[in-house]
């Protein structure tokens, strides 16, 4: 209750939250990790929505080394850069990103089955 009373005098800024947290990049920018099936039992893992400040190539290099797979950074016209990895690396990628402190755990969304 007291907290509420304190807040009342100041004018309400509807954009305060979005400005403070993630500077202008949508409501809650998730990192989406998806899987895509290829022919046979092959698949691709895509990582989309990492922050622009990070060097995608360096992350990719570590990912490739860690999971022993190949991968690329793809430039998409709408979504910007996307990391692509060979094979189903969804769990690996999410644990790697959280451990490296690049993304918080609750900002990762794993899609696919």
């Amino acid at each position: 209750m007291s907290e509420l009373d304190l807040q009342i005098p100041s004018p309400f800024d509807p954009f305060a939250e979005s400005n403070a947290e993630d500077s202008g990049a949508g409501s809650k920018d998730y990192v989406h990790i998806r899987i895509q099936q290829r022919n046979g039992r092959k698949s691709l893992t895509t990582v989309q929505g990492l922050k622009k400040e990070f060097s995608y190539n360096k992350i990719l290099k570590d990912l490739k080394k860690e999971f022993c797979c190949n991968g690329t950074v793809v430039q998409d016209s709408e979504l910007g850069q996307v990391i692509q990895l060979q094979g189903d690396q969804r769990k690996n990628v999410s644990s790697f990103l959280t451990q490296a402190g690049i993304v918080k755990k609750d900002h990762i969304k794993i899609h696919g089955f």
């Binding site: 989406h32 998806r34 895509q36 099936q37 290829r38 022919n39 691709l44 895509t46 989309q48 793809v74 998409d76 979504l79 996307v82 692509q84 899609h111």
Partner: peptide, 8 residues
């Protein structure tokens, strides 16, 4: 749908 890589 997000990013869909081209396969095939």
């Amino acid at each position: 749908a997000g990013f869909v890589a081209r396969v095939g």
